[in-house]
Simulated scan of single mutants.
Amino acid sequence: MRIDTAEHAQGNIPPQSNLPDPVLTPLSRRQADRLVHLALRAATDLGLTVTYQGGAALVPADPSADRPVLGLSNLARIIARFEEDRWPSLIEEHFTGMLAQLSQGPPPPPADPERELIQRLVPRDALPSSWTSDRPDFLPGLISVPSAETDGVVTMYFEPADLGLTWSDAERFGLANLRRLKDQVEYVDHDDLRITFVSGTGYAASRALVLDTVLRETLQVEHPPYGVLAALPARDTLILHVIEDLSVLPALGVLLNVAARCYSRDPGPLSPEVHLVTPGLTWHPATTELPDHAPLRLSPELESLTKLLATREGAAQSRYPMP
């Protein structure tokens, strides 16, 4: 059971302390302060001289030092699932494992890039702009990068030439290996709607890059006649709904809600948006955001599809009237 401690105030805590922390989501400000305190103590016990200056990371107290920079964003999302009395041990375990990885140095480059590279979706704004300026978006704010995983550590390769490859070759290898991954699938039926959750690896959301394979091999859907709704809220979650009729509208509401929750709480956030993917695998936004915080509206593409579905359902009902 997931326990969201951010929603449970404890004792007579000042109301300001229970406001959401603007950086270390989904924790409250009080909980974020406690995370930073525990993280600093754990780092000190491990022999590190670091400080917290905001920005969701512990940085070297000596400004001239390059390392280590210890991120807290994903740690905040992990510990939010547990009661606070478990936080000290979880944080200590997290930093012990992180330092063990750092002490071993960077993982070696893949010996066989053709078999080892896996394409990965990452947020553009999480990376230095100089690394990504020449890479197109797969979806707004998300780029596709060749990567390799060694002992649970993922390394991304922004200069495939270092591996003796062109970008196109590295991407081709990465997509081919991404297609070979096996999905863990959970079907959730909600008010006669079927929502599919694809998970099982840290590349689950990246499987959107090979959605045709996911539909064919995982969902056993060769050619969805009206396309699918898709959301990629976090790196280990891909949410899908195969469109069959006007139930796409309540399905959109479910996906918007679940995607927003996953994006705000799960490690490795990618995007809270829901997308309409056509039968030809063209991606469009499912909604259009209006100014002044007005309610979302259907995107032109989804609005056109719902009109088509309404026309066809109306024609079917007139052809076969209810008794």
Rank of each mutant, 00 (worst) to 15 (best):
E7R: 15
A76F: 08
R2S: 15
T237R: 09
R77Q: 00
V188S: 14
L35F: 05
A80P: 03
P279K: 05
L281D: 06
L276V: 05
A56P: 00
L99G: 01
P146M: 06
P291T: 06
F173V: 07
S147C: 09
V50C: 08
R312H: 07
L99W: 00
T44S: 08
D266W: 09
G314D: 01
P295N: 08
T25Y: 01
L290M: 10
R34N: 15
V228G: 06
T25H: 12
G174R: 08
A6H: 00
I78Q: 13
Q184D: 11
D236P: 08
D62V: 05
S144Q: 09
D4N: 08
A100D: 12
D62G: 07
R67Q: 06
G314H: 07
G174V: 06
E313Q: 06
D189V: 14
G174S: 06
V254D: 09
I13Q: 14
D189H: 13
M1V: 15
L38T: 01
M1R: 15
A80W: 01
E289V: 15
D236V: 06
S133P: 10
E83I: 10
A126G: 04
H275P: 03
P26C: 00
L142F: 04
E222T: 15
N18Q: 09
V210I: 04
L163C: 04
N12Q: 13
T132R: 07
G152W: 03
P225C: 05
L72K: 02
R312T: 08
